[in-house]
């Protein structure tokens, strides 16, 4: 088993940050907050995956980040192209350029698994999304296994594990004095050559503490429940905000608009931007004439659950949810996807 000492790991990360973009979990926001707050986000600093300048900025002791890894592959906002006027007075389009190579350090196994879902949607079927494809290609994923499943986590109920190496290029598992290192892919192999890994015999890997596993509804149960009053009852307390969608590692809905901005320097920029959107928003389906096929809140809420567990598996041959538990923790009215799944799974199949 390969091994790296903590100090060697820090030195390697410091070097990496000099050579390329290093993204890693890091604490953000003012330190003084309200530790006793009922809002978990207000209790203290939150950890995000952000670009860091070295190991000192990395948060090592975190559960899950406030936002998933998705924001680094499908940014909250990106410019698809700028629209400029050529010398002949005609429009010229300039596409967003390729990004530099990146190392994404400390990605949790569930977040890496989320990329598998995004891959299926954005790359799995022709034509592929070139912006997403570039970022995926240019990024090497170094995973950090969870020492345990945290509150609200349910990765083990949807096929994942807190120490799964399936979707990363390299996986680090914390052990006494350092990390056990699994090099998973060729991409990981290339990156690992610079790590200075040691070979250690008989290294014992810790067994992460798991949360109780539960059974998922069958396809028949999903089908039979579509028109059930159940969705109205869950929808009753839904606020129709977008927290669940935006913290989710596998939600990928986007909006596209053109915008003209004038910079403080007076430069006029016309561009087409793509930004996150959510099926929970009331305008999501509104057509130009005003028709809204999903005007009711419960229809929108239902869509999110079906998208994860029924539509994505059918349309893209992927599991739509990785069980990261973010939507559970962040929902201000305690709409708990685990509860919904178990409620449906208890039903008699039609």
């Amino acid at each position: 088993m390969k091994f790296i000492e903590i100090r060697a790991l820090h030195e390697w990360l410091d070097r990496l940050a000099q050579e390329m973009t290093l993204i890693a979990p890091t604490a953000v926001g003012p330190q003084e907050k309200a530790p006793g707050s009922r809002n978990p986000a207000a209790q203290g600093q939150q950890v995000f995956y952000r670009q860091v300048e070295g190991a000192a900025q990395i948060a090592w002791d975190f559960t899950r980040t406030a936002l998933s890894a998705r924001e680094h592959f499908m940014p909250k906002t990106e410019t698809l192209f700028t629209i400029e006027t050529g010398p002949d007075g005609k429009a010229v389009l300039h596409e967003t350029k390729l990004e530099q190579p990146r190392v994404f350090f400390g990605i949790r196994p569930c977040d890496a698994r989320g990329l598998r879902v995004l891959d299926a949607v954005m790359l799995g079927q022709e034509p592929a999304d070139v912006y997403y494809a570039q970022r995926r290609e240019n990024t090497t994923l170094v995973g950090l296994a969870c020492p345990q499943m945290w509150e609200d986590c349910f990765c083990n109920s949807v096929g994942g594990a807190p120490d799964a190496a399936d979707d990363v290029d390299i996986l680090l598992i914390q052990v006494e004095g350092g990390f056990a290192v699994q090099v998973v892919t060729e991409k990981g192999e290339r990156l690992a050559t610079g790590m200075g890994l040691q070979e250690v015999e008989g290294l014992e890997l810790p067994q992460p503490k798991l949360n109780e596993q539960f059974a998922l509804p069958t396809q028949q149960q999903w089908l039979a429940s579509f028109n059930d009053v159940y969705w109205q009852r869950v929808g009753d307390r839904c606020l129709s905000c977008r927290i669940c969608s935006y913290v989710c590692p596998t939600c990928r809905c986007f909006d596209v608009r053109d915008e003209t901005v004038v910079t403080p320097q007076g430069e006029r920029i016309v561009r087409r931007v793509r930004a996150w959107d959510s099926c929970q928003g009331v305008n999501y389906r509104v057509q130009a004439g005003g028709a809204n096929p999903r005007a009711n809140l419960e229809q929108r809420l239902r869509n999110r659950f079906y998208c994860k567990y029924y539509y994505v598996p059918i349309d893209y041959a992927a599991d739509g949810c990785v069980g990261c538990g973010r939507c559970v923790t962040a929902c201000p009215v305690n709409i708990d996807i685990r509860e919904v799944l178990q409620d449906l799974a208890r039903r008699e199949p039609a």
């Binding site: 809905c253 986007f254 596209v256 999501y284 389906r285 096929p293 079906y306 539509y311």
Partner: peptide
């Protein structure tokens, strides 16, 4: 049928009717 959409290629998630895009 018509639907609001932003990509036309099955990515933006906008135009689904059940599992059909």
């Amino acid at each position: 049928l018509e639907a609001r959409m932003h990509c036309g290629i099955g990515k933006c998630g906008r135009c689904n009717l059940g599992e059909k895009l």
